[in-house]
Design a protein around this nucleic acid. Structure first.
Lengths: 229, 229
DNA sequence: TTTTCCATTATGTCTATATTTATAGATTGA
DNA sequence: TCAATCTATAAATATAGACATAATGGAAAA
C-alpha cells in the first residue's frame, strides 16, 4: 500500500507532464509529500533526487524544489569499445594495424593533451571492420612518457584501445563529436569517396592529471550515433 | 570522523584506479565495507549505487559487486535550447523564420515518427545566428493532428523549439548525431560551400506515445559537440 | 539607508534496523 | 543427465529519527 520511491517519482513526473505542476512552480516540500504518499521522507527524497538528476526539477536548500522552466535535456551516449559495438550488432569483428611509429609529439597534440614537456609518443593507425567492411578508422597517439611499455606491445592482433582499458582501469576524458571531409587516406581505408562527409569522434584521456592518449575515430560513411531519453 | 558516502565512493574509486581492486575482481560485500569504513550499510549502498550508475562496477543480488572489465563509458551531452547555447557563449542571439508551410506528412516523416494515419504537419525552416553569423539551420516538422494550435502561431519572433518546450513540458525523444554534406540550400544559409561536411542532429519527440515533432538541426561548418566525463 | 548578522527552514546526509527481492548454487526428482 | 525446485545470501528498498548545511529574509547595527 505504501508508495515506493518509484511510485512517488512516477506520480510526480506525471503531475509535471500533465501540467498540474507547470514549469516554474514549486513542488510541496518533502515532509508534505511524505504525508501525501504515506511514506518516509527518505523515500520522497530519493524520488526527488532522481528527478533532479534527470534535469526535470531543480532543488535548493531552503528554497524548495521547483519544476525547471526548460527541462535540461541531456542525452547519454554510450561509448563502447569498437569490438563490442560491432559484435553486439551480430556482425563479425576484424581488426588490422595499418601503421605504428614512435615519434616526438607534434605541437597540435601537445596543445590538445596539455603537455608541457615535449615527449615521445606512439602513433598508431588502425582499422576496424564489421563483416569484412570498413567500419572505423582509428588514429591514436599514446604518451610514452607515461606508458613507456606501450612501445613494446605488438598491436598486430588487438587494438590499442583494448590494451589501454586493461592497463589504465579508469580515467578522465574529453570527447568531441564533429563532421569532417574524407581526405585521400580516409577515403581509401573507409571505402568512400574523397570529400564525403564523415562522422568523427575525438577523445583525449587523462589519468591523475597526466595525459594518456588522444584518439581520433572516423566512422564509415553514413554512421549515426543514436540514443533515446 | 565517520565516512560520508562521498568518502566511501572516492576511496573505492581510488582502489579501483590504483589497481588494488582490478577489473573483474569482487569488491567486499556491503556489510563488510560498512565495518571497514565505520559507517552504516546505507552509506556504503549509496556509494556503490552511484559507482554502478557511473558504469564503474556491476552489482548483482547474491553475486556481489564486481569491478567492470571494461567500464561502460557513457558521455552525457546536454542538448540546450539554441538561444541559451548561443547566449551562454556570450554572443548575441538572433532568430529568423525562413519558411512556414502547412502540408501532408511525407512518407519518410511518417516512418520516422511512426505515424499510422497520414496527417497534416507544419513544416518550418528557421535560422539561428550568433553575433550575426549563421549558427544553426533548423528544419522542423510539427504534427498538427496533435498540436492543431501550432498552425495559428506566428513563428516570426520566437523559434518553434521554445514554443514547444513551453507547450509540452516533458516528452520522450530519440536523438541521432551524424555528418552530412552541405547541399545548395544549406550552403547558402550557413555561409559555407556546397559539399562541406556539416554536423547534424536529428530529434524525434513523442508525448504519451504520440509523435509531436521531428527536427533536423544542421550546425555551421566546424561545429563540435564536446563533453567531459 | 546600507550592511552585517542570525534565526529559520528546506534539503542533504547519516544511522540502525527491517523487509523484500533476485539469484547462485545446492538439492531433488524424472 | 538434465531440468525443476528449494534455500541461503546479498543487494534493493523502506523507515524513523537525528544532525549538518546552506540559503533566505528579516532584525540589528553602522
Amino acid at each position: 500500500m505504501t508508495a515506493t520511491y518509484r511510485d512517488v517519482k512516477a506520480d510526480i513526473l506525471e503531475k509535471i507532464t500533465l501540467g498540474i505542476w507547470p514549469p516554474g512552480s514549486t513542488i510541496p516540500k518533502e515532509i508534505e509529500l511524505a504525508e501525501i504518499y504515506d511514506c518516509a521522507r527518505a523515500t520522497v527524497n530519493r524520488a526527488m533526487r532522481e528527478l533532479a538528476e534527470d534535469g526535470i526539477v531543480e532543488r535548493k536548500r531552503k528554497a524548495g524544489t521547483k519544476v525547471r522552466m526548460a527541462p535540461v535535456r541531456q542525452a547519454r551516449f554510450e561509448i563502447p569499445i569498437v569490438r563490442k559495438e560491432i559484435e553486439d550488432k551480430g556482425t563479425e569483428y576484424r581488426y588490422a594495424l595499418v601503421r605504428k611509429e614512435r615519434q616526438q609529439a607534434p605541437d597540435w597534440l601537445r596543445a590538445r593533451l596539455r603537455l608541457n614537456d615535449g615527449g615521445a609518443v606512439l602513433h598508431l593507425i588502425c582499422m576496424h571492420y564489421a563483416d569484412g567492411a570498413p567500419y572505423q578508422y582509428e588514429d591514436r597517439w599514446i604518451n610514452l612518457d607515461l606508458l613507456p611499455n606501450a612501445a613494446e606491445i605488438d598491436f598486430a592482433d588487438t587494438g590499442p584501445n583494448e590494451w589501454l582499458v586493461a592497463t589504465i582501469p579508469f580515467s578522465n576524458a574529453e570527447i568531441s563529436l564533429l563532421a569532417t571531409m574524407a581526405d585521400a587516406e580516409l577515403a581509401e581505408h573507409l571505402g568512400c569517396s574523397k570529400g564525403d562527409a564523415l562522422f568523427q569522434a575525438e577523445r583525449s584521456t587523462w589519468w591523475d592529471g597526466k595525459a594518456i592518449t588522444f584518439v581520433r575515430l572516423t566512422f564509415r560513411k553514413g554512421h549515426r550515433m543514436t540514443t533515446r531519453y
